[in-house]
Computed example of a mutant assay.
Amino acid sequence: MSELPAPLRAAIARELEGVGRKGLAERAGATSATYRAGGTSAAAIRSAEDALAYALTRLPATYAACVAVFAEAARMAPGFAPKRLLDAGSGTAAASWAAAGQWELEALTWLDASAPFLDMAGRLAEDGPLPQADRLRADLTGAGPWPRADLVVASYALAEIAEARQADVVRSLWAATEGLLALVEPGTPAGFGRILAARSALIAHGAEVLAPCPHARDCPLASPDWCHFSIRLPRSREHRMAKGAELPFEDEKFAYLIAARPGIADADRGARVLAHPRAGKPGIELKLCGPQGLESRFVARREKQAHAKARRLGWGDAL
């Protein structure tokens, strides 16, 4: 399971000191209801208390998804060593923490329209390993241009932008990208739709798709199917109380795209496992997206070496 770094857990605990748990749970519930109804951070996050409720309930899942995405980026581009990060729609800076766990960053820019989010991100990072961040309070749909960076990430940000403006936002983020651009969205059909539209726009502007796609052709998935992945993360006691949950873990579903400038990646693009492998006595069945499109591959138990490798594969892995 993907757990928050110790300094970040300690910072959240410090922010929770003296805060009533009942009121926090009510704020978390109201925030979730606003987002589910299609509201934006401007409507959901109006105070430091709102930002804290969000950090407690949503930061861990965003962090876990970004950890998975950045690990795949590092696997696909092992020679890539970004020093500058632009965290676009940064919120409480979960993506920045995930990136700092994967690479040694030297400069950060947090771009967000929410003052409570930027303030909370700063307080949470005070005693942590993140470099001092430049805070840029601006709307992603603004004119830009945005600060250029080796690594640009927009996690759970496109969902707050009107569909008609999303392509322009993606293009402006790509213009700021000197190495890799990572986009992360909820693992819903709508989230995948935003990723798919961004993929088309980026390919049209010369981007190389690193992951999860093993090719740059049209996506072979057809509705009601959609491409998404899952990562499990632990819930703290406070996390469970704020969400009214009982299980000590949750599974975050996410969709993502990693796009690169030419020459950044040097790893082979193997087929991607699109669902939990189905194991039975005869063998293991894999649902794959490969260089030639969708395929179903059966690995028989009698094929001992191949079967041993297939047993280690999980949803989202690449062959």
Score class of each variant (00 low, 15 high):
residue 206 G to N: 04
residue 1 M to D: 01
residue 79 G to H: 08
residue 237 R to A: 15
residue 210 L to G: 03
residue 52 L to Y: 10
residue 122 G to Q: 10
residue 226 W to Y: 15
residue 137 R to E: 12
residue 144 G to I: 02
residue 35 Y to N: 00
residue 173 L to N: 09
residue 264 I to W: 01
residue 104 E to F: 01
residue 11 A to R: 11
residue 18 G to A: 11
residue 266 D to P: 02
residue 82 P to K: 09
residue 66 C to E: 08
residue 195 I to E: 07
residue 129 P to D: 14
residue 310 A to I: 03
residue 190 A to F: 07
residue 289 C to D: 05
residue 253 K to H: 14
residue 1 M to L: 06
residue 232 R to V: 01
residue 169 V to K: 08
residue 93 A to T: 06
residue 308 A to T: 13
residue 245 A to K: 11
residue 265 A to D: 06
residue 184 V to S: 09
residue 55 A to Q: 03
residue 100 A to V: 09
residue 5 P to E: 09
residue 115 A to L: 15
residue 292 Q to T: 08
residue 1 M to C: 01
residue 155 S to V: 03
residue 274 L to N: 02
residue 167 A to V: 11
residue 81 A to E: 13
residue 203 I to D: 07
residue 231 I to R: 00
residue 249 F to T: 00
residue 190 A to Q: 15
residue 51 A to H: 07
residue 236 S to L: 00
residue 312 R to H: 06
residue 171 R to M: 01
residue 189 P to Y: 04
residue 313 L to W: 13
residue 217 R to D: 11
residue 1 M to S: 09
residue 1 M to P: 05
residue 222 A to L: 14
residue 90 S to V: 08
residue 16 L to S: 06
residue 240 R to E: 08
residue 25 A to C: 08
residue 182 A to P: 03
residue 107 A to F: 13
residue 51 A to L: 09
residue 53 A to E: 00
residue 201 A to G: 00
residue 16 L to I: 11
residue 226 W to P: 04
residue 86 L to V: 09
residue 229 F to N: 03
residue 283 G to C: 08
residue 258 I to S: 09
residue 112 D to W: 06
residue 281 K to A: 13
residue 264 I to S: 02
residue 200 S to T: 15
residue 103 W to T: 05
residue 142 G to S: 03
residue 296 S to Q: 10
residue 142 G to K: 00
residue 274 L to K: 04
residue 162 A to W: 01
residue 225 D to Q: 05
residue 77 A to W: 00
residue 225 D to T: 00
residue 58 R to Q: 12
residue 97 W to A: 01
residue 300 A to F: 12
residue 173 L to D: 10
residue 32 S to E: 08
residue 61 A to T: 14
residue 305 Q to L: 14
residue 209 V to I: 15
residue 169 V to C: 12
residue 199 R to A: 04
residue 105 L to K: 04
residue 164 A to F: 03
residue 15 E to Q: 14
residue 202 L to Q: 10
residue 247 L to I: 10
residue 144 G to W: 01
residue 123 R to H: 10
residue 197 A to L: 12
residue 161 I to N: 04
residue 20 G to T: 11
residue 17 E to T: 02
residue 275 A to Y: 06
residue 191 G to P: 06
residue 54 Y to I: 10
residue 217 R to L: 12
residue 215 H to I: 09
residue 11 A to I: 03
residue 92 T to I: 02
residue 41 S to P: 09
residue 117 F to D: 08
residue 224 P to G: 05
residue 134 D to W: 13
residue 157 A to R: 12
residue 118 L to Y: 08
residue 166 Q to C: 10
residue 226 W to K: 11
residue 292 Q to E: 11
residue 5 P to N: 09
residue 283 G to N: 07
residue 263 G to T: 06
residue 144 G to S: 06
residue 7 P to I: 05
residue 168 D to W: 03
